[in-house]
Design a protein around this nucleic acid. Structure first.
Lengths: 195, 195
DNA sequence: TTGCGCGGAGAACGTTCGTTCTCTACTGTA
DNA sequence: TACAGTAGAGAACGAACGTTCTCCGCGCAA
């Protein structure tokens, strides 16, 4: 039998995929059971309710997003490059065949009005991303006001790509980010990250 | 008794408010009936199904959005001012107490995966907005590539404001739009709209 | 007045879903 | 072998929902 951690992870991963592909409310716990290979009894011993599972899925997605972003910026050496790497990361994501927009935005639109736990988890993820951008902006020597502008570009690219069904928005957002960076950063070599 | 058009409008308006406030799937047809003051029998004689009502609500919202945007840009005399008026319009909207993000984005996240009619209606609305922006960009004498960048800013501001629960994003997006405009438009007086 | 058709109120129906319960099989121990 | 405990499969339960149906009252034509 699976130990508790393995069962927990199997359930969260299966629920994540199903929720993302079809929407949370369109997926029954039976479908999660089948996909995860974990009995309903066990699922309900690991999570008190579907709501709790939803929050666990959002936390799991936060980790996936953070590590994806981190690995996408690994090759970048300057803060400016790291900022632009965000949009390259988005571009690659938008091209995945099962891309269906940002799971946090989707889930917030679906359940944010009725579940404060969901709204909180989504808000927390976005706040973390904004802080990540703010750090890069500071590293680049740009004024702090640039950070929310870049974050808004990233958010807008995600919804635009999801609705249009094309990855173009990543390219447009990246071009806008470059313009904003050029306008914000004093005209001298960008600072190296961490310097 | 209400004539057909009045009943239709009462149902669509009531459904619009309820769907926007709570999410589509969280609202039963009984609640629409009560809010609209139109019997279920009548509702189903006007709309073949809830899906059809949802699409009608989205079309109604498109009209509301378009006219709101048009009246917000009435006082603007130049294309640049009209572009920035978009973000002032967003700012005013974000400050409304019952603001809960863009209904199109929310509905797409909730039902876009299962209903192509919903996905189509949402895509159509976004396409119309992008064309509106593209026209203003052309009027301003800026290169066409600026238009999708401004549209992405507007989309990102809507989701950011909805999730954060604050109207700040409108201000940030407006500032970014100004920077992009300054960088894109040749340094001479902007053309007057329609000239 | 009588009959007719339309529409309102809401009960009813069938389905789906979240959650719990029952039954059975299996594992490890004495 | 007998037994206790655990977990899986899925039936069962109660609620909610989309949709339809029934019953009743009203307005109107003759």
């Amino acid at each position: 039998m699976m130990d508790e951690n393995a069962a927990r992870e199997a359930v969260v991963r299966a629920a994540d995929e199903l929720f993302y592909a079809r929407g949370v409310q369109a997926v029954g716990m039976d479908a999660v059971r089948t996909a995860a290979g974990v009995s309903l009894k066990r699922i309900y011993s690991l999570f008190a309710s579907k709501d709790e599972l939803i929050v666990a899925v959002l936390h799991h997605r936060t980790g996936v997003w953070d590590s994806g972003l981190a690995s996408a910026s690994e090759r970048a050496t300057t803060a400016r490059e790291r900022i632009l790497a965000i949009f390259d990361f988005l571009d690659a994501w938008f091209r995945e065949p099962d891309f269906r927009g940002c799971a946090f935005i989707n889930t917030h639109g679906e359940l944010g009005a009725s579940s404060t736990a969901v709204a909180d988890a989504v808000r927390e993820q976005k706040r973390t991303f904004q802080q990540y951008v703010a750090q890069l902006v500071a590293d680049a020597g740009a004024p702090p006001a640039l950070a929310p502008q870049l974050a808004i570009l990233a958010e807008g690219a995600q919804t635009t790509a999801a609705i249009a069904g094309t990855p173009d928005a990543a390219h447009h957002a990246r071009a806008a980010a470059e313009t904003l960076l050029d306008a914000a950063v004093p005209a001298r070599p960008a600072a190296v990250v961490g310097s």
